[in-house]
Design a protein around this nucleic acid. Structure first.
Lengths: 160, 160
DNA sequence: GAAAGAATGTTGTCATTGACAACAATATTC
DNA sequence: GAATATTGTTGTCAATGACAACATTCTTTC
């Protein structure tokens, strides 16, 4: 897709800040949702670009991390945590399993559900993925400013 | 106040709608994108629900507002401002035109483009829509806290 | 001022996503 | 034990983002 560019031009990825004249936003200025969405799109696009070699989307990344932090849990528990609908999560997990990154063993306690965990291969892959994700987060810090990034996380963390 | 609990033992992060047990987030805690996305989804869902009687999605709302604030502008100018791809915007505008809310008259200056504006009917509809959107924003304020909402807008406004 | 290139708006198509319904198997509740 | 709920699965639909191709109309370059 879009090949890598020098760092100085990378800001154009999602936000496109100063390139051309933008119009007045009117009432939109008063809506938190608009600003949230705007930055979120930029961040996700950078995530996808930075992790393009791993071919991993943000939702998949979040699932891998939550499985890693909570081995043995069921699909429904993962879905509840990340607000992913169970049908969608089922399909996503099938992909991750096909990649050889997660295992789904029958749960001892509930015969309907599986105990999810990373495979050895999954852990190895995740190590590289996390390092790419940290690189992405450094881009975010560069774009937003580290102080502002921390303030935002603190403000946003508090509601689930 | 950020040290409510040890870094590793982070459990229930505030109630979503039904506070079921949620798992640990692991590395995800360090990613601004995750938190941005989480709140943005909540906000957009409330927007859609609150404006369900108008049957208007956030993107359409933003287009109406920017047209209202900049009458006579072209599709490409609107799209540039809101980061909406021109193919997608074209289809959206056809819908809004079919609703009778916007007019597209040939631009005097450039025969390729249209001068967009709200119709009288569109302005009337927008008045009601804006009042619903303010109701939505009040929900956001209630959920997030008005102080935090203002802080967030101020922090987020600066890039875009 | 003609040719080459860029921009505008349009339509077609594809992949991803979110939402919801139906289903089989198993748990839970009464 | 019967009714009900939950878990995971598959099917389907609508909305979205992305991209390519196209006709029309500027704009640039020579």
């Amino acid at each position: 897709m879009n090949s890598r560019q020098p760092a100085s031009e990378q800001l154009v990825i999602g936000g496109d800040i100063e390139s051309e004249s933008k119009l007045r936003l009117g009432e939109l200025q008063n809506h938190l949702g608009y600003f949230l969405r705007r930055l979120q799109v930029w961040v996700f696009q950078d995530f996808i670009a930075t992790l393009s070699s791993a071919n991993l989307r943000p939702a998949q990344y979040s699932v891998l991390l939550v499985i890693a932090a909570n081995p043995g849990q069921s699909q429904s528990a993962i879905g509840r945590t990340l607000n992913i609908e169970r049908a969608r999560l089922a399909r996503m997990l099938h992909e991750l399993e096909a990649h050889g990154w997660i295992s789904r063993r029958p749960s001892g306690k509930d015969a309907r559900s599986y105990a999810l965990a990373l495979t050895a291969e999954g852990k190895k892959a995740l190590a590289k993925i996390v390092s790419l994700a940290q690189e992405h987060e450094a881009h975010v810090s560069e774009f937003v400013g580290e102080d502002r990034r921390l303030k935002l996380i603190e403000l946003l963390r508090q509601f689930g």
